[in-house]
Amino acid sequence: MLSERQQKILRAIVDEYIVHAEPVGSRTVSKREDIGFSAATVRNEMADLEEMGFLEQPHTSAGRIPSQIGYRYYVDHLMGPERLKRSDLIMIRQLFASQMDALEQTIQQTVSILSRITNYTSIMLGPELYDNKLKHLQVIPLHDRMAVVILVTDTGHVDQRRITVPEGVSLSWIEQMVNLLNAKLSGVPLFRLKRTVYKELYQELSRHAEHYEYLQGIIDQMLVADQEGRIFTSGTTNILTQPEFKDVEKVKALMELFEETDTVVQLLSNQEDTGVQIRIGQENHLEAVNNCSIVSASFTVNGRSLGTIGVLGPTRMDYRKVVSLLEVLTRDFSEHLRRIYG
């Protein structure tokens, strides 16, 4: 545990560095109204904080910057809520007050507003085509060991998947299973498909015990949501305005990351159903974002998590502002979805 004085000094250094992006010296900290310690006292405490791993000293400066450990301590113990600007709150409320029935339009507007207010990159994993229902499935044989399964929704969305047919499984048997699924699942919302299959069709499907494991795999392939259709981003080039990312290689790695659908999904995966999560630097387990932080939260309807919205920025992120924004956005967006879908 840090002493109260060390906590105040660490908080001051993080706050100063977030605003100015320059190493923070002891004189700068001592002049703050909320500190009240001499520059010499602050300097000694800064040396101790560096030794404990909370601060780092760039070679070219006498000042200190927060380490990733320092940021983690800050967000866990020192960061208070931020009062958002009235203009930002009005912008959010106007978005959800407008009667936009098109979910995709609402999502795109939401990520756009979030990136505009924060000046970071915003990402949303949207609902799995929440407002679409299954119209029918169709299987088209390509050859003995390969087929294409086509999923059509009531809104005309078409998704197709290639499936491999193993030895001992006939295409006629697969067609029989697809006909069964059509009979039971037509009109079911896409996000409920897999749950409905395993809850309501388990007994019928388990009669085909010799192929049941393969059948599960096929159903998973057929009914998996199209990830690309779920990912919405805004402000992907905002990172270029941050002084930490003048290194071309760092920026190149990040830009390439946004082109990899699975990787973007991974960034926001394992999100808890409630609350805001903060992952700092190497906690993200992806080299491209080792110098970034990701703050994310889920939005829900009737207790069910439907998607995740997140903000990606430098570790020198304004955490207080981003957390407060996400708390407001996820609450209002969840309420908006409840009004539309009940």
Rank of each mutant, 00 (worst) to 15 (best):
Y214L: 03
Q99A: 13
L215K: 03
E82L: 12
G156D: 05
A21V: 09
L2E: 02
V148T: 07
T164M: 14
H336D: 14
A297K: 00
R43M: 10
E213R: 10
K85M: 11
H59Q: 13
V178E: 05
T261N: 03
L257Y: 02
L84C: 06
P189N: 12
K133Q: 13
Q7A: 07
F333W: 06
G342K: 04
Y74S: 03
I218V: 14
G126M: 00
P166I: 04
Q138K: 15
F299L: 02
S305D: 11
I9Q: 04
R192S: 06
R207L: 07
R331S: 07
V276H: 00
I231T: 08
M177F: 08
L257D: 01
S87Q: 15
M124W: 04
M52I: 07
Y319M: 08
R93A: 14
S98V: 09
G53N: 01
G310M: 05
F258S: 09
L306V: 07
E260I: 11
T308P: 08
M52A: 12
G156V: 06
Q6T: 00
R230C: 08
Q176L: 02
P189M: 12
Q227Y: 08
V322D: 00
T274V: 14
A253R: 15
Q221F: 10
H77W: 06
T41Q: 08
N291G: 11
G53A: 04
I309A: 04
Q7Y: 02
E33P: 07
N290R: 15
T110N: 01
I9V: 09
S87V: 15
Y202I: 07
V178T: 11
Q109L: 09
S98K: 09
E33N: 08
L180N: 09
G217H: 01
V323P: 00
E249C: 06
R162E: 14
V328I: 14
G313H: 02
E287Q: 15
E82H: 06
L325A: 03
H59A: 13
L95F: 05
I123R: 01
V158R: 14
S61N: 05
L337R: 07
H136A: 11
G307E: 08
S269L: 05
E175H: 06
I278A: 03
M100G: 09
T274D: 15
I9H: 01
I278G: 03
I280M: 07
D220A: 10
S296I: 06
Q160F: 12
E213L: 15
L286R: 14
I117P: 04
V29I: 11
I69L: 14
G307Q: 05
H285V: 11
M100T: 13
M177G: 05
K133D: 06
L10C: 02
N132K: 15
P66K: 04
A209N: 07
M317H: 00
E213Q: 15
A97T: 10
L151N: 02
L306C: 06
L171S: 04
I150V: 15
A62R: 14
P243T: 07
I140H: 12
E204F: 10
L312H: 06
K250W: 03
I113W: 02
A40Q: 15
E335H: 13
A39D: 12
E335G: 11
H143M: 13
D101C: 09
Y74P: 02
V322T: 09
V42E: 05
G275M: 05
V323C: 07
S296N: 10
L181F: 11
F258K: 10
L312P: 03
A62W: 09
L257N: 05
A288T: 07
L312E: 04
K184W: 05
